[in-house]
Write a protein that binds this DNA or RNA. Sequence first.
DNA 1: AGAAAAAATGAAATTTTATTTCATAATGTA
DNA 2: TACATTATGAAATAAAATTTCATTTTTTCT
Lengths: 282, 282
Amino acid sequence: MNILEKITNELDMLSKSERKVAEVILASPNTVIHSSIAALAKQANISEPTVNRFCRRLDTKGYPDFKLHLAQSLANGTPYVNRHVDENDTADEYTSKIFESTMASLELARKSLDANDINRSVDVLTQANKISFFGLGASAIVAHDAQNKFFRFNVPVVYFDDILMQRMSAINSRQGDVVVVISHTGRTKSLVEVASLAKENDATVIGITTTGTPLAKECSIVLSVDVSEDTDLYMPMSSRIAQLALIDVLATGFTLRRGSKFRDNLKKVKDSLRSSRFERKD
Amino acid sequence: MNILEKITNELDMLSKSERKVAEVILASPNTVIHSSIAALAKQANISEPTVNRFCRRLDTKGYPDFKLHLAQSLANGTPYVNRHVDENDTADEYTSKIFESTMASLELARKSLDANDINRSVDVLTQANKISFFGLGASAIVAHDAQNKFFRFNVPVVYFDDILMQRMSAINSRQGDVVVVISHTGRTKSLVEVASLAKENDATVIGITTTGTPLAKECSIVLSVDVSEDTDLYMPMSSRIAQLALIDVLATGFTLRRGSKFRDNLKKVKDSLRSSRFERKD
DNA sequence: AGAAAAAATGAAATTTTATTTCATAATGTA
DNA sequence: TACATTATGAAATAAAATTTCATTTTTTCT
């Protein structure tokens, strides 16, 4: 997609003159988007048709189309890159880096999600007799958050962040129950076991985990939340944030599916909190 | 900067014919960037010079320049914008909208944060005898997450999501203790009281809340996490996600401040979890 | 090495696209 | 209603991009 990267990659597929064009563009892309084909040709010391051929080789329709692609690459080139925190970073620097890589993770996670699986999950959740959310460690808070959210919907919902309770609950599950198992690594033994126990007892098991993990194999539906590997010591687990966003998605899907009568109920819950708060004056 | 917003804003500065152009562009900007001035003129049922004048009125050099701006807006326009979920959205649509507005919130929150306050917070946290995180509802899970994170640092840390425990803990706090109070609205009565109690008992109180709330007034240090108001029924509380990112920032600041010897310790904790997991084969 | 084929390149012609000019129409103002 | 102002489009012009085609360079094969 990013045309600047594409130019870099295909640099050796290009002819000598075309490479001159590439170099001029890579050197100052911001100037190029405001240049005519003639200006660029002159800058690179080659002829106009060569520039045109260069553009076509990059699968664009011609020079104007190429400029459009270039402009777009420049617009979204930097923002959501996963920049690593450095030991000498100032507060401002590491703050920016963490927020940005969190956003990058969200973007990745969004891409790894399949709308079909979300739809199916919302289906089974709306039909469920009882919903349980299980997680450990960082994923425990996601399970907890999910409980908070689904509690408002006035459906039987529990969450456990304790291995024994999870196991007991899984063993007692039955047809019509939905068990949502949350784990970034998808390799935590006890959670994988819990998932398979729940499945054996006829519950529908939804896994919120990374693609292709042992946990994923045990689930009825897998909601893949892939984020970049945290190879970096300083980098926080953005996986839990992506998982939370997914919980929001499921909750939203749930609300939409249940229709308008149901939404009034939601408003009531919101209003009931009012008296515990200081009034705002605006 | 964003030309689409600019068109929307200046819609009433435009003449009748120019507005027709604007409408066509707003309706399908993605088509327009691939249209010639003639095609666009025809589409809007006006003449080519009108299109040209329209472009100039938006402070661009002409039609090609306008298309460049438009292309850039489209490239980074969507992700940041808070698009609202609609009743008839497909799973794919509401998923995208939620992820995108979550990212938008993160961006807003990042802007509202002050590096100085973060620095001071990291200061007091590294010096603390004991750290407590308090939150209720959605913010409870943030407090919980903070405990998980800071627990690894081998410092005395607790979290409470229970009003009474929070209150008792606040009353028992003393000089050198740090109390972190988390609340998006900053108007939850019991939390504001807890903050002031802790302060009376000489604890340093860090507030993670919106600028200018009652809670903010009670705190020694305020970490402002402003996100857009959730006027929309379907829109989830992205505030908690922004708060989590801030916890990551504080934890990172903490690690950096403590220096390298300390980081070895962190690695040990990570390694200790290994035996509870299935090995990966890659 | 040298001839033939293939590929690359640019000058000029052509086509497409955008802009300017100017006359006319629409709108507002006294 | 008459005048001024502004808005608009047809046609002319200018600018930019593309195509054609002849020339040069490079590669391949003997």
